[in-house]
Structures are given as C-alpha cells and as structure tokens.
C-alpha cells in the first residue's frame, strides 16, 4: 500500500443515508478476478441513464464535482456486503477519502486496508460538510485534522494502527507474517489441549 499523509480537494457530496455497497458497485460487476477497472461501474445504476449517458441528477456527475477526490456521504455509508470491490471501485473512480458521521464496519476496514481514508466525524461538522458541497478541504492523516479555509480545524478519530499503516504505507500482510512464531505456539497449545 502507498503511504497517504495528506489529501487536498474540493468535496463532492452524496447526502443520502445508508448508501449501501450494492449502490457503490452492483453485484453483477463482481464477476471479475482482478482489483482493477471497477471505477467505470462505481455507482453504476445511479450514475448512468438507460442509454448509458450520464444521469444529470447524480450529484457526482455535476461539473463542479468532477475531479473531487473527497466524498462526503450521509450517515452509515458502505452498509451491506463485505465486497472489497466497493473501495476498489471508489479508488479507481478517483475518490481518496470518504467522510461520514457513521461508516459501516466491514466497508471501513476494507477501505483503510486499501488506502482509502475513511473518516467518521461528529454530527455537526458532518452536517456542515453535507451542506457545503465543493468545500475546499485538507485532510491531514498525521494530525488527524480536517481544515477548510476560514473555519476552525476539525479533529477526527482514527484507529492508531490504521493511521500508522496509512502514514507509513505498511503492508499488513507483512506485519501479520512477523507473528508466525506466536501463531505456531498458539497452534501447538491447541493441539496439546485437544
């Protein structure tokens, strides 16, 4: 994983609550055997009209949302399935951070393991961001702050290990493999107990 320290972008907003993983990437696009190229189907059924053209009512299709890499979403973003295709699709689409007042557990885990910064904010700053699409936002992963010009810094919580992995680009598989001796000891203990 590449290290992620700072993201600066205007925000795009999807204000709906409970945007589920089926909306982020419909199941019929999960028959892939790679992680790549899912961006074109990100939010597929919301984003395109029947004839395949862009749906003008989809907020991310608006001209001002183009190129935004920070997504502010309504409460409980990413609920539903465990498909890691959801963060893969968002990253491939160009989203580098998702901010909500609540993010579903499995989605948040999957996102952070791929360098998609998933940030949970208190209701008030979240509300402000929902109400101000296009806000110029800087996310500082190390300081755990969100800043917008002319406003007080917002602090966010981030699980310390996930933060460390983002900042240092830590390979979690490598970290786990360092525990092989402890794993073998555990297995030995289980065999003896049985």
């Amino acid at each position: 994983m590449n290290s992620v320290t700072r993201i600066q972008s205007r925000t795009a907003v999807l204000a709906d609550e409970n945007i589920d993983t089926d909306r982020i990437i419909p199941a019929r696009y999960l028959t892939t055997t790679t992680r790549d190229g899912l961006g074109k189907n990100c939010f597929n059924d919301w984003r395109y009209l029947k004839d395949g053209s862009d749906n003008p009512d989809f907020p991310l299709n608006r001209p001002e949302a183009k190129g935004c890499s920070i997504l502010v979403a309504g409460r409980n973003f990413g609920c539903g399935s465990s498909r890691e295709h959801a963060p893969w699709a968002l990253l491939d689409y160009g989203i580098q951070a998702v901010i909500s007042s609540e993010i579903a557990d499995i989605f948040r885990n999957n996102a952070l393991k791929n360098g998609l910064v998933a940030i949970v904010l208190d209701t008030n700053p979240h509300r402000w961001l929902l109400d101000h699409p296009g806000a110029d936002v800087t996310i500082d992963v190390k300081a755990q702050t969100i800043t917008t010009p002319g406003h007080a810094e917002i602090h966010f919580e981030l699980e310390p290990f996930a933060r460390h992995c983002l900042l240092e680009g830590v390979d979690q598989m490598g970290f786990l493999l360092q525990h092989l001796d402890a794993i073998k000891t555990y297995e030995q203990r289980q065999r003896e107990a049985a």
């Binding site: 992680r35 465990s82 963060p87 499995i106 885990n109 393991k113 786990l176 493999l177 525990h179």
Partner: peptide
C-alpha cells in the same frame, strides 16, 4: 464477514 485483503491474510497466516 471479511474483505478480500483479509481473505488473503487468513490464507497466509
């Protein structure tokens, strides 16, 4: 339930 990265973690460790 787990994501695919974690599927890999369990496979390896």
């Amino acid at each position: 339930g787990i994501g695919t990265t974690e599927v890999g973690h369990v496979m390896a460790t």
